[in-house]
Design a protein around this nucleic acid. Structure first.
Lengths: 195, 195
DNA sequence: CCTTGATCTGAACGACTGTTCAGTTACAAC
DNA sequence: GTTGTAACTGAACAGTCGTTCAGATCAAGG
């Protein structure tokens, strides 16, 4: 046996990414073997190495492309200049974006310690850029007197933790729809910071 | 060689727990081998099995005793009946308790997926009991008109996520002391729910 | 139709995994 | 001082790990 019928890199490459993402999210990077990923794709282990140099790159690529998506999607989404409206836009964006890709989000938060130091630094910088976007809104509103915030950096961490926490309990089939969740969280965050 | 000088189960048992806790927190359960734990304790692998039936039990014991500590410490701490004061007490308790044992907290949140289904159910029930304590305070305050909350269950998740998030950024050597952090968070949570 | 390159298999590499256990030594009680 | 047992070593077990690569097969272009 060798090359199989219908095989094509344009098909196999995304299937490997999807399999790795699903398995990493479910069992954790360290607990998933290359052979499990290959089996999920329907291929032998060796074939994976036509698409990734090693297991670590597979993880890093998943995380960095997730954060790329996050940063560019947010750059495109953010249109409001008024701090209050900008904060509402951020809140709704964050909830919607993260609810749509739970596996990628989960990996980006859980597998940081399995990155090599260089890869970790890269990912951490991207995450920091995203957080800084929220900090900027909060400081803006603070300067304009629209927000009443004791400590902008702490408020940033609190709001992000609160919003990202949605992914731990939200289920599409649950009691609340995603837009109801959006409403409730925007209500809470407004009370938290708006003067 | 066999039994080593000065060896005693009362000494070795806690050293194994501490080594496992530190290593699991740093590298993750799946990425840590029994041989690494043994090396940290200064013992051969086989000796570990005088203290634990298997690796899974080691993880489960760490997690369940952490949650036992959490539940009993909180039961002892909670004295206030007034909803606003009870919520303040909860806020300060949560921050203090979690800041003191970052490794145990980290493991309890990150390694849930590495538990067997039975062990997972046990741990999840304990965590749920803790959350229910906060929910009870919120519903109490809602019933008495002291709190203005749109959805008590969502508010519970939001507050817990916000508070537990402190562990991801707080450092003893950082800009803020723990009691300053307590103050800031209680300020935010008060605004979030108090009518 | 043939050739070239893309794609995958099958097998192998050495290293590491969790777990068991017979044998050895130190300690505690008498 | 002897004895019983608590505590540990050292070696072994059968698997699994990530990674490499020669060789086989398919797809596509001339």
């Amino acid at each position: 046996m060798a090359r199989t019928a219908g095989s094509h890199s344009a098909l196999t490459a995304p299937r490997i990414r999807e399999a790795a993402q699903a398995l990493f999210a479910q069992h954790g990077y360290a607990a998933v073997s290359m052979r499990q990923i290959a089996a999920e794709v329907g291929v032998q282990v060796g074939a994976l190495y036509n698409y990734t140099s090693d297991k670590q790159s597979l993880l890093f690529d998943l995380m960095s492309s997730h954060l790329d998506d996050l940063l560019s999607a947010r750059a495109e989404d953010q249109t409001e200049a008024d701090p209050v409206q900008a904060l509402e836009q951020f809140t709704r964006f964050h909830i919607r974006f993260h609810a749509r890709r739970p596996d990628a989000v989960f990996i980006a938060y859980m597998e940081l310690r399995n990155l090599t130091p260089e890869n970790f630094a890269t990912i951490e910088a991207m995450r920091r850029r995203y957080e800084d976007g929220l900090s900027a809104i909060l400081r803006d509103g603070q300067a304009q007197g629209a927000f009443r915030i004791q400590d902008a950096r702490v408020a940033t961490m609190a709001i992000i933790a609160m919003l990202t926490g949605v992914n731990t309990w939200f289920r599409k089939t649950g009691r609340l729809s995603l837009s109801e969740v959006e409403e409730i969280y925007w209500g809470m965050i407004r009370r938290l910071v708006v003067a």
